[in-house]
């Protein structure tokens, strides 16, 4: 009976939901604010040697300086901008390619769909990072654009598979048949019925992709395949801090905290958003 499903989720979830939303907004908001700020202002010139080498945190340099004497806080702040650009760009490219392919697969004939599903499964079996490295290698210049594109391609397989499954599930429901018998075109059905109904799950997935992309970009940069030096990616900061991790641990800790806080923030935000865009979960 339906009664049990209805009582399974008590109101606590909704209150908790709004709490996660606000925590997510706060964390991501800080990164966005810092990222935007660095476009017009940063504490020091990011490439200027403004202090001694590997200085400890002080009033002048809140997070100390790196081994070339550059202000470390400035670098971390610019890292926020890079991470946001890469995360957003890669998630957007992954979403556009993935959702389109997933929808096409869901509507395709049985044979095509099976072939498509098998291809996706094989692609997903490769680690995101590996695919991204291959794409970067193929592009043969390492810059921010190629990193974003590479990660977007790598993520699109995951999005496509999810979109395909979610779409197939919605296609079975009577309101789709009702739309067809009302004369709604397939394109109309996609935009009016399918996308709004799979959006809550997809949006959470996009946020996860964003987090994955931010981490993968850090990994690419760590391996020297990410954005080239004037762009202070957290991955490169971590890589540079590797040799001095015992003498100046802040060099590893600070970019790590920055990365983790952004990824957690975006996940909380996604969770909170899912609850608020779903009319069936809104307060009655």
């Amino acid at each position: 009976m339906t009664t049990l499903d209805q009582i399974a989720a008590p109101n606590r979830r909704r209150r908790f939901g709004s709490l996660t939303l606000w925590a997510g907004i706060a964390l991501v908001g800080i990164h966005i604010a810092v990222g935007l700020l660095t476009v017009v202002w940063s504490p020091y010139d990011p490439s200027g040697m403004t202090g001694g080498r590997l200085e400890a945190p002080s009033w002048l340099h809140w997070a100390g300086t790196d081994r070339l004497g550059r202000d470390f806080l400035t670098q971390i702040m610019i890292g926020s901008r890079i991470a946001l650009i890469v995360g957003t760009g890669a998630a957007a490219i992954g979403a556009i390619i993935g959702v389109t392919l997933g929808l096409l697969a869901a509507f395709a004939t049985k044979l095509l769909d099976d072939a498509f599903a098998a291809t996706l499964d094989i692609l997903i079996a490769f680690p995101t990072l590996l695919i991204a490295m291959l794409v970067v290698a193929a592009a043969d210049t390492a810059n921010l654009g190629s990193a974003i594109f590479a990660l977007g391609i790598a993520l699109s397989a995951i999005v496509a598979r999810l979109t395909r499954i979610l779409t197939k599930r919605v296609l079975l429901l009577d309101y789709i048949t009702a739309a067809r018998t009302s004369g709604t075109s397939w394109l109309g059905i996609v935009f009016r019925h399918i996308l709004p109904n799979i959006w809550p799950t997809l949006s959470v997935s996009f946020a996860l992709q964003f987090g994955l992309a931010a981490i993968a970009e850090a990994s690419l940069s760590y391996l020297g395949l990410g954005a080239p030096p004037p762009n202070a990616s957290w991955g490169r900061l971590l890589q540079e801090a590797q040799g001095t991790v015992y003498t100046a641990p802040i060099g590893a800790i600070a970019p790590g905290i920055a990365l983790v806080s952004l990824v957690i923030g975006i996940n909380l935000l996604a969770d909170g958003l899912r609850d608020s865009v779903d009319p069936t979960r809104r307060a009655r």
Binding site: M1, T2, T3, I7, A8
Partner: peptide, 19 residues
């Protein structure tokens, strides 16, 4: 539906959900 008839049966055999 919603009358609680199935819940009564579940209660009788101690099969109620924990909440």
């Amino acid at each position: 539906s919603g009358s609680g008839k199935s819940l009564t049966a579940m209660a009788a055999t101690g099969l109620l959900p924990t909440n």
